[in-house]
Write a protein that binds this DNA or RNA. Structure first.
Lengths: 119, 119
DNA sequence: TCATTATGCAACTAAAAAGTTGCGTATTTG
DNA sequence: CAAATACGCAACTTTTTAGTTGCATAATGA
């Protein structure tokens, strides 16, 4: 290895998960995402009916969700259907699991340390 | 049951998880949270050293995390130590798991439907 | 005690996000 | 075809968020 070829596994996170959480970090967007989890794609106007704001506002939220890869869009006729997209959700879950895992092992190390100290 | 006493289990989410995701939805905050997951509490200035911004900016981020219940603060001497707080993380994970679960069963229902259709 | 370190508060600027309005254009449907 | 539906784009206002700066204060340590 001469030129530090890419240096994989440097301990740091190579991906920015904050984008994902930011997309879910708005009540309207989270509600939409939550609702689409039943598998039924919905049009923009269908989603706008329950959200007390303009259709354009909902459109913007949908685009944020889409940009984050949490939903998918495809146009059918005159309406644009948005559908749930599970991959990024899985990634978010995996990330949180990983953080929780690190915390757990930190707890374990502390516990062991205390026990060793008492012995 | 005469007067619809509280109507528990109405299907709707009684808690707003978007607050939690919004707190994690900023790269600086997520980095801090991620870092504190090793169990070691850190002072504001310690956390400010690696974040290329003012101490005051970091302070604000820490307060957002604290307001969301993701970290805890307690003052020791002249410095204020921020520590990881696992409970809300667990809640966020549980919520995402629940969404993923609903999606999975939606998939199952669809699969069954298609199979029944083919039979 | 005096300088240093660690922090808090308040006012401020800058930038991004949330939401609205107006208008134009496809697509249905009666 | 004409009306209604579903949507897109662009400009705009409003609100929030992110971040800075200046100043004051409490705790430490030589």
């Amino acid at each position: 290895m001469q030129k530090a070829e890419k240096n994989t596994d440097n301990g740091k996170q190579d991906r920015d998960f904050s984008v994902l959480f930011a997309a879910l970090g708005d009540p309207t967007r989270l509600a939409i995402f939550d609702r689409l989890a039943d598998g039924r794609p919905r049009s923009i106007s269908a989603l706008s009916d329950d959200a007390d704001m303009t259709r354009q506002a909902v459109t913007k939220h949908l685009r944020v969700l889409e940009a984050a890869g949490l939903v998918q869009n495809h146009r059918v006729g005159r309406e644009s259907q948005y559908a749930f997209c599970p991959d990024q959700l899985a990634d978010a879950r995996a990330y949180l699991d990983q953080v929780a895992g690190r915390w757990e092992s930190a707890l374990m190390r502390l516990k062991t340390f205390v026990e060793d100290d008492e012995a």
